[in-house]
């Protein structure tokens, strides 16, 4: 199966560990991975800030880049960015050159955990991680992409990992893309509430499917001098893997 890695600008600029872990996991499950070098960004930073005209080039570039390899699927390590790609058909519907391509790219793009669970039918990725962890569900992954099951389902099978539910998990962590930098006084109060709830769980590890949220929450933890280990779900599923533990779902999720 040919898979294009939609690396996202955040991973390209900041988090090589996330991209590496995702690639290794996908290859473990038989994916032949490609990384088109012209890809950049889904366009959210500017589009969501109101620079719609200035984002057109980013949209087109991203579509062309992701379609430059004739792959079966496109997989990204960020729920928010994948949700944005899924909205491309709506944004490009009046663009005669790109409307069809936008539909094509949206139809085969999946968030990493969603792809493992829903497309490949992975039940147990074979990972082992000793520790107490909690999971931050990102707003865009749950509300815009509509995926609230796959990360929990996969994390439940990680050997040695104790998952502790997070209070007020439905509240935004205050990232919001450029919101975090444009309205720091509001964003700070939101991330402090989130940090408080995470500390209350007693977890040592914070896991999420969105590097943006992790960058916000992790950065605040560091500023406040509170200890935490930040892990993207791909890193968790790539920890101490014993392939004999790998299992597949008997029934595919609907």
């Amino acid at each position: 199966m040919k898979v294009v890695i939609f690396s996202t600008c955040v991973v390209d600029l900041e988090f090589p560990n996330v991209g590496i872990a995702m690639t290794e996991v996908l290859e473990r499950f038989g994916c032949d991975c490609y990384l088109p070098k012209d890809q950049i960004c889904c366009g959210q930073p500017t589009f969501n800030s109101g620079y719609a005209k200035g984002t057109q080039r980013a949209f087109r570039n991203q579509i062309d880049a992701l379609l430059s390899v004739d792959a079966d699927y496109i997989v990204g390590p960020a729920g928010s960015c994948v949700a944005m790609i899924r909205e491309f058909p709506e944004f490009m519907k009046d663009d005669p050159q790109y409307a069809d391509k936008a539909r094509e790219v949206a139809a085969k793009t999946f968030e990493f955990s969603q792809f493992l669970w829903r497309v490949l039918g992975v039940e147990n990725a074979g990972a082992e991680l000793d520790g107490r962890a909690t999971y931050h569900r990102s707003c865009h992954m749950t509300r815009l992409l509509g995926e609230s099951e796959s990360p929990y389902a996969l994390l439940a099978h990680v050997k040695g990992l104790e998952m502790i539910p997070l209070e007020n998990a439905h509240d935004c962590c205050g990232f919001g893309g450029t919101f975090s930098a444009k309205e720091p006084e509001i964003s700070r109060q939101m991330v402090d509430a989130k940090v408080g709830h995470i500390v209350d769980t007693g977890a040592e590890i914070l896991i999420s499917c969105d590097p943006g949220c992790l960058m916000n929450i992790g950065g605040r933890f560091n500023r406040l001098g509170k200890p935490i280990k930040i892990m993207h779900i791909a890193e968790v599923l790539n920890s101490n893997v014993d392939e004999s533990r790998i299992s597949y779902l008997k029934q595919m999720p609907v």
Partner: peptide, 12 residues
């Protein structure tokens, strides 16, 4: 800065 990001995300 936002306009620069717009340009930076448009050219590989």
């Amino acid at each position: 800065m936002m306009e620069a990001i717009g340009i930076g995300t448009g050219f590989p």
